[in-house]
Simulated scan of single mutants.
Amino acid sequence: MAAPLPTIPARSPRSRRRRVALVAITGVVLVVAIALAVAFAVGQAATAQPPGPGTRIVASDLSAATEAASDAAEGTAEHSAAQYLSEQPTMYWLLPEADPVGVVAERIGHLAAEARAQSARLGVVVYGLPGRDCGNHSAGGLDEDAYTAWTTAIGEALSEASDVSPIVVLEPDSLALAPECGNVADRVRQLSGAIDALASERTWIYVDGGHSSWLAADEMADLIDRLDAGDAIRGFATNVSNYNGTADEIAYAHEVADSSSGLHAIIDTSRNGAGATGEWCNPPGRLVGEPGGSLGDDVIDTNLWIKVPGESDGPCNGGPAAGSWWPESAIDLTRDVVTE
């Protein structure tokens, strides 16, 4: 007779429940891991895209508005205006005077950390080329060797911040002002070098595109095309630090793009809510414009607040030095959106 088969002990109900629980927990862990991986991939893909409608840049605690809000007495018009402006996503201006070569990487690192915390993108203006503003109200900048070192440091730091897909506006007024200053060749050389230093896969660079009341569109396009930047730049920025209405800037940007090699544009709407009077230096009665990320089409990537509302254009119409915080301007610009 064959030997009896060994008896397999029955699993207790408690053992079966434990096994089911372990399987369920493993399944949940796998689902969470997959979801996180998908979310990370989606986030990476989103930040790899060029700016567009819905783009949000960081509202930094390094802004002049934040400092002004902390200095002003609560309950005052000055505090209310500064507090409102400190909360609005606005480009941070990198200046060699405030952010020199030994400091600028740390500054960009701070901005990138803020962008991550806000689920926003890093947005900076690079403003320090030789002979900046042709000696006008925003005069300054670096000599060519120092400018090369400075933009190289910026480019390296932006590359480290690729996860927040930096948006760079490079040297406002530099190209549009060059014919008047008689230094087109110098500007093309300096900007071309800066583009080489700043360019990386996830950095979106926009060069100076003037504005609708300045150079003719074909002349502006020719200046941009002289950079021969190819895919290293996304396009050009218009209306930076000016007040022209959005519709005028959209039309102008389309004309420039049609005359250039397929470039895209962003428009500064930080102070154009009441349109322009033809005056560029602290004209009274202006208003903040559409929030960043409000618009876009096949040429206009989007609009952003590039010039910092509340900072003076220069010592004109009662304003302080260019770039200085001017409480009266902040109050005037926000009068339709801030109530005390």
Rank of each mutant, 00 (worst) to 15 (best):
G52C: 00
R121Q: 04
R17L: 15
A229N: 02
A35M: 14
A322S: 14
L85I: 10
H79C: 03
E74K: 12
E144G: 02
A81C: 11
A139P: 03
A105M: 06
L30G: 15
A3Q: 02
Q83A: 14
A46P: 09
A146N: 10
T26L: 15
T238H: 01
E201T: 11
V38R: 14
S192N: 13
I300M: 11
A64L: 13
P284V: 07
A21L: 13
Y147K: 00
I108L: 06
S294G: 12
A24W: 02
P309G: 11
C134W: 12
A149F: 00
S294H: 10
A73L: 13
A176Q: 11
S212Y: 02
N244C: 12
L227S: 07
G75Q: 01
E180N: 05
I233S: 11
D133E: 09
G123R: 08
L94G: 02
V32S: 12
E328A: 11
L22M: 14
R335I: 02
P100F: 03
I108F: 04
A229V: 07
A41L: 15
R116H: 06
I224S: 08
V188G: 08
A77N: 09
S329I: 09
G193Q: 10
L177G: 08
G285P: 03
E78K: 05
A117Y: 06
T269S: 11
I167K: 02
P283C: 10
T76Y: 05
S60C: 14
F236I: 05
E219A: 08
G209H: 02
L263E: 08
G273C: 07
T148W: 00
A64G: 14
A221M: 07
E160I: 00
E144K: 08
R234Q: 12
T246I: 13
L129S: 10
R116K: 10
W305T: 04
W305P: 01
P327F: 04
P6M: 05
E78W: 02
M91Q: 10
I224R: 06
N242D: 14
V338N: 06
T246R: 02
A274C: 01
P283N: 09
G314Y: 05
A194Y: 02
V164Q: 05
D143P: 03
I154V: 14
T76D: 09
Y243N: 05
V169I: 15
R132I: 08
E311R: 15
G27S: 13
V38M: 13
A69L: 04
V288Q: 01
A178H: 04
E156R: 11
L223R: 03
P166W: 03
G128Y: 01
